[in-house]
Design a protein around this nucleic acid. Structure first.
Lengths: 210, 210
DNA sequence: AATGAAGTCAAGCAGTCGCTTGAGTTCTAT
DNA sequence: ATAGAACTCAAGCGACTGCTTGACTTCATT
């Protein structure tokens, strides 16, 4: 009954569970929810098909858990970046903070990139009960709109919300489209040097220029 | 043997073929290539399952034809808009021309919107032999980069290409993500008033601003 | 009226899908 | 030692997939 004693059976079970989640995340990132197959997941995870039913109840439930993990991981990183901004942050600093989780994931690849791709795909084809996590999306967007409003006092808030959504959509597109794979080969500072001005420009709009 | 005489059998066959293409386009727009089912297509088209094999050879071939039609329809519209620009067009005019096909489709809905959604999904999950149509994409992008270079003489061309890709990705995202459905309910001038500055800002970047 | 091409149709084939089942293994607890 | 919980496994179920088949209707041609 000592809690620090490792039960080898439970330990192996947790390992199987984690492997299934990792395999599911990878397939979700590559092909989306419709392209995930019970047998392919279990094969990649080195597990039996019955392990999914045992640990998660169903394939859909496994995918929902994997998606939930990915969403939380991404949104936590994004909110952390935005929280670190001072009230007087410039548009470029806002763009930098807003895009940093994506840039990091692109150059890091692996699991971080799979998280990004999965999140972006969820934005296109939302799973059934995803409304439960919509609150965190709202929080990240509200943070960005707040900094944006301080820089663009004259602009209607509906426009600011729209611009944040556009910028988020642009980043998501970089994650899922083949162009993202090209960017992944570039060094991080080059990606930032190209991307940050575009995001900042989308935030600001072209109102002040001919 | 008179060519103007309507052969009722061939006429009905063409009708079935077109209905299959329309049903396939709608499903491709809603769920992507993986979510298209032979029986659902034929049911929506009011045809028998064998009609797909008869008219197209296979489900994949039907989807390829539908995708090809959608790509040509979109790219022709985009290239037409960019061709109409004068050499001295401003960034806002470029953004307007670049985004007009998407804005029109969003407010028009129906088949035009299905075309946009399908094109955007192809950008995420390209079908096998899509390289054959990549040339038209290049043409549209080169047109946009040309106008962009005239407005931003100091910027590296690689950056300009990147910005055009980002803008295209942003528009594609609006087509496939739920936010596009919200925009579809707005009047066209409001969509343009919100969207054009963002696209133009992404083109220009935030270099000239604090 | 006879012929044959064009097209449609219900039925069914082989394969894959998600999921369940019951037996089997491995370890803890008593 | 023994009982039972935790977990894994091969096998198989019904449902669905894309696709084929052969009979059938429809129509222009002759």
């Amino acid at each position: 009954m000592r809690p620090e004693k490792t039960d080898l059976r439970r330990e192996a079970g947790q390992r199987t569970r984690d492997d299934l989640l990792a395999a599911a995340l990878e397939l979700l990132a590559q092909r989306g929810q419709g392209g995930v197959t019970l047998r392919e997941i279990t094969q990649n995870a080195g597990a039996n098909v019955a392990a999914v039913s045992y640990h998660f109840g169903s394939l859909k439930a496994l995918c929902e858990v994997a998606i939930e993990h990915a969403l939380e991981r991404y949104l936590d990183a994004q909110i952390r970046e935005l929280d670190a901004l001072t009230g007087s942050a410039t548009l470029s600093e806002l763009a930098e903070a807003f895009a940093r989780p994506m840039v990091s994931a692109l150059v890091a690849g692996g699991r971080d990139l799979a998280v990004m791709r999965t999140v972006a795909r969820v934005g296109i084809d939302p799973p059934e009960g995803w409304e439960r996590l919509a609150g965190k999306f709202e929080e990240a967007r509200r943070q960005a709109v707040r900094v944006l409003a301080a820089n663009l006092p004259g602009v209607d808030e509906r426009d600011l919300v729209f611009r944040v959504r556009c910028a988020a959509g642009m980043l998501n597109w970089l994650a899922v489209a083949p162009i993202g794979a090209e960017l992944a080969a570039e060094p991080a500072e080059r990606v930032e040097r190209m991307l940050i001005p575009v995001v900042a420009g989308a935030f600001r709009g072209a109102l002040a220029s001919p």
